[in-house]
Design a protein around this nucleic acid. Sequence first.
DNA 1: ATTTTCGGCTAACATGTGTTAGCTGACTGG
DNA 2: CCAGTCAGCTAACACATGTTAGCCGAAAAT
Lengths: 219, 219
Amino acid sequence: MAGIRAQKKEKTRQMIIQAALNQLSAEQSFANLSLREVAREAGIAPTSFYRHFKDMEELGLTLVDECGVTLRQLMRSARKKFDDDISVIKVSVETFMEFVENNPNIFRLLLRERSGTSKAFRDAIAREVQHFTIELADYLHETTGLDLPLAKLQSDALVKITFNNGAEYLDAPVENKQELINSTITQLRFIANGAASMINKPESKEPSPSGGMTENESS
Amino acid sequence: MAGIRAQKKEKTRQMIIQAALNQLSAEQSFANLSLREVAREAGIAPTSFYRHFKDMEELGLTLVDECGVTLRQLMRSARKKFDDDISVIKVSVETFMEFVENNPNIFRLLLRERSGTSKAFRDAIAREVQHFTIELADYLHETTGLDLPLAKLQSDALVKITFNNGAEYLDAPVENKQELINSTITQLRFIANGAASMINKPESKEPSPSGGMTENESS
DNA sequence: ATTTTCGGCTAACATGTGTTAGCTGACTGG
DNA sequence: CCAGTCAGCTAACACATGTTAGCCGAAAAT
């Protein structure tokens, strides 16, 4: 009744997952990871893989889900820190980059398969990101009073910038990382300020900006 | 001297390039495109491929370069339209989405290999994007008076948002495309307005904790 | 006219892949 | 204790891939 059987099974299942994660790197994406390679690294026969996943794709989706869990934890942790009354943007960015730093391979997985070959992958990742975006939009809506559609647009932009800079952060040399964090913060502040400035003049959505872009000089 | 030999060679070279482009789609990325497949579609023997490219990677880099050329044309065309005095942002976005629409496969190539497995690819694409970003930064610097580092940050954010929304545009159903364009324009305007609002208070560049979004004042 | 160059071809190889069939032996449930 | 389950294994298959070796014939060079 202890389930010594199921226990062992779960154990090697974790071995497989871990093996897959270990093999991910800058030079190897999940897409060109072979079932046999994973099985080899997990220390099982290739055919045993099928006892746990019907597909490499199924494995991949599992990884994405696990990643979703980790991201929730991340957000929770970020919110906790924010209770301490520091700038949301700063804390969010730092937390996110910390996540990237600690889970480079899983982040690379998201990054790559987001625009990958498998629709199931793309959808799963889009779902995760949307989760992220919507929660942020709600938060913005409540704290800034921006109407929900605009808040959604803002958080969407914030997430996109953060995600993209996370990708650069991943490969940046150590001495540039802090600078990259600062850049990201500034860019997010662009967006936050710009969105805030539209609260009082939402009609500026129409193409009549006052910005000093009068005429240009060809370069 | 007519070079009837070189002429034929160039012709099949183009056949190869065209074959590669034809095989790209939502379901097939350049990364998992095989030399033999390309050769087959190009109507040549697999081994003949080597007469033109040493590698699939070399082919890929060629495609990226070609894409760069197309993008330059795009920018030129956008600038021309802008002489007609419409909002830069609107025209830029529309032009970019037009490019995505007309060159879905080559855009997908950029999108995917940007975070792909080959460093050469990543670098080549980063170079192309930087080209794009720097020219835009210069333009912003000259027209808005924003100091160059900030202009760089702004254009970087603009490009990232545009690029990302281009990816969504690619797979969006027809009835959502115009909406996506409008969303993109609004998001870019967030950034433009936000950056403009920092011209007079550049000290907010520093991530000092006073600049939280909860307490930002309208300009 | 003769030789060289060279783009394209066929044949073949060594290798890695996903997947099926079927055995074994330890755990499980009665 | 005994029959059944089932995770893991070996062996094997059919297949696709990258790449080498070497021939052929037309264009180019001499």
